[in-house]
Each structure stands twice: as C-alpha cells, then as structure tokens.
Simulated scan of single mutants.
Amino acid sequence: MPASPSTDPKDARGTAPAPDEAIEQGLPTAIVALKVVEALASAPGGLGVTRLAQLLGMPKARVHRHLSVLREHGYVAQDPDTNQYRVGWQMFLLARACNSRFDVVSLARPVLESLRDQVGQTVVISTFSDNEVVVIDLLRGTAPVEISLRPGTRFHHNSVAQGKIVLAFGAQKLRDGYLQQPLPACTPRTIVDPERLAAEIALVRRRGWADAPEELYIGINALAAPLLQADGELFGTLAIVGSIHYLPSTPDPAHVQALLDAAGQISAAMGHTG
C-alpha cells in the first residue's frame, strides 16, 4: 500500500520551513515589502528591525534586506540616532498618486491657486527627509520667466528656503544632525558655514519665513513658510519660487504676507490651531 501524503509541515528535505519561507511561500517579495511599509505606516514613532521582524513573523536578516532596498529608493527612512525606521518621502508621492482626492495637496489646491494668482510666481509644496526637501506638488506661475520643477525633485536643506524652514521648524535632532555634516554648495551664495547656517535658522524661526536668494541657482530666489499638522509637527513647506527680478533679495512685504496667510490656511485645513 502506498504511503499516505504527509501532513507534517516539512519540506522535501525533512526540515520545517523557516519563518520567512513560510510567509513568502504564499506572498510575492513585492507584497512582503508592502507589508513592511504598512507596519511602519502604523507606527508614527518608527520601528526597529527586531520589533518589525516580530510583527511580521520574519527573521531579522530578511527584514533588514527589505528595509535596505526600500530605504535606497526613498520608501523608508532611518533615524540616525535611534536606528528606527519610518515611512519615507517617496510614500508621500505614492499616497498623492493613489489618493489625490483626499490628500493635503487636493485640500490646499484652492489656496495654492489664490496665492499663485496674487504673486504670479510658481507655488510649490514640499515634504522632507533628514537631508533634503522633496517637491510633492506645484502650480506654475504666470510670469514671463517660468521656473521648471517637477514632483520628486530634491534639494539640500542648506541650499533652499524650504530646507531652512525644515531646519527651523523640524525636529531638533534633524537640525543637529544636519549641522554636523559637510554642507554642499550649489552657488557661491549657498550657506556652507555651520555657524552662519545656525544663525540663519534662528532668524527663520523668529520671523516665520525663509528666503534663499541665488543660493540654489544664480538668478533664482524663493520664499518659504512652514505647513504644520494638528499636533504642531512640521508636515512640509509652502514656497513661492521665481526669478530674482520678481523675488528680490529684499522681498516685497505683500508677497511675504500672502505666503504666510496661505500657509496658515493650509495648516488650518490639517487641523493646526496655533
């Protein structure tokens, strides 16, 4: 009589499958990566590799491999102090593409259009990572000189007005970490001295807005203000970008006020009441 099929959870080698094999036998690698991102999205404070492996029922080595690939492509970010992982800037772009009806950009669209019409310049919303700001949406201006940007464009914090906002209104550890590393130069006017940048950050914090005349590109300036969430944490930045002819080194007070009013309206739409 032939032997009946075995119900023992072992493979042909007579050994039980490893936990990661048990998961991935039924799930493609891409789905496992999504499960990793899903777990991180449910933990705003971030997760370490050990805890994430426990939640997913996977070995730490396999989880770490997934995290490394996701981090390389911007889908997760790692806190340099705690080594914990959280969702990265690329997820903002993905969320925008998948859920544009309800995201912040859609809520902000009427405000962006009003600001663009007031100042005539390109209006940009950005989010951020530890070292860069990332453009997530924009409305092109009506001025004869148009600034070309696209979602996903990234800039170093010290080279743009949006980055100065992140350093001024973001977490202390982000600011401290950035000031301890070499500061890249884009033009002769880019701030590359840590003490000077620290002083600029303090100024931005006091007045509530930032500029960066010709610090990224010669002939280009930007004004930026913070976008704050209901809990007071920084979501990202709102910026006006244009030629130095239209946005001079000494900005028009009307432009600054229009920017601050628009940023306040978008922040209020996210629940911020400060």
Rank of each mutant, 00 (worst) to 15 (best):
I201K: 03
I201L: 04
I201P: 00
L203P: 12
L203E: 11
V204I: 02
V204D: 00
V204T: 03
V204G: 00
V204S: 00
V204Q: 00
R205L: 04
R205G: 02
R205M: 04
R205N: 03
R206A: 11
R207M: 09
G208W: 00
W209D: 02
W209F: 05
W209G: 01
A210Q: 04
D211R: 09
D211W: 05
D211A: 09
A212H: 01
P213T: 15
P213G: 08
P213R: 13
P213E: 07
E214Q: 09
E214T: 12
E215I: 05
E215L: 11
E215A: 09
L216Y: 08
L216F: 09
Y217D: 14
I218M: 08
G219V: 11
G219W: 03
G219I: 13
G219N: 06
I220R: 13
N221G: 10
N221H: 06
N221E: 08
A222M: 09
A222S: 10
L223A: 07
A224Y: 02
A225M: 13
A225Q: 11
P226A: 09
P226V: 01
L227Q: 05
L228F: 07
L228S: 12
Q229K: 10
A230W: 03
A230L: 06
A230T: 12
A230K: 07
D231Y: 14
D231L: 06
D231N: 07
E233L: 15
L234S: 12
F235Y: 15
F235R: 13
G236Q: 06
T237N: 14
T237S: 13
L238A: 04
L238H: 03
L238T: 02
A239M: 11
A239N: 15
A239C: 10
I240W: 13
V241S: 08
V241N: 12
V241H: 09
G242Q: 07
G242K: 12
G242N: 12
G242T: 12
S243H: 15
S243K: 13
I244W: 14
I244N: 11
I244F: 09
I244S: 12
I244P: 07
H245C: 15
H245K: 10
H245R: 13
P248F: 02
P248R: 02
P248H: 02
P248M: 01
P248I: 04
P248T: 05
S249L: 11
T250H: 11
T250V: 11
T250N: 12
P251C: 06
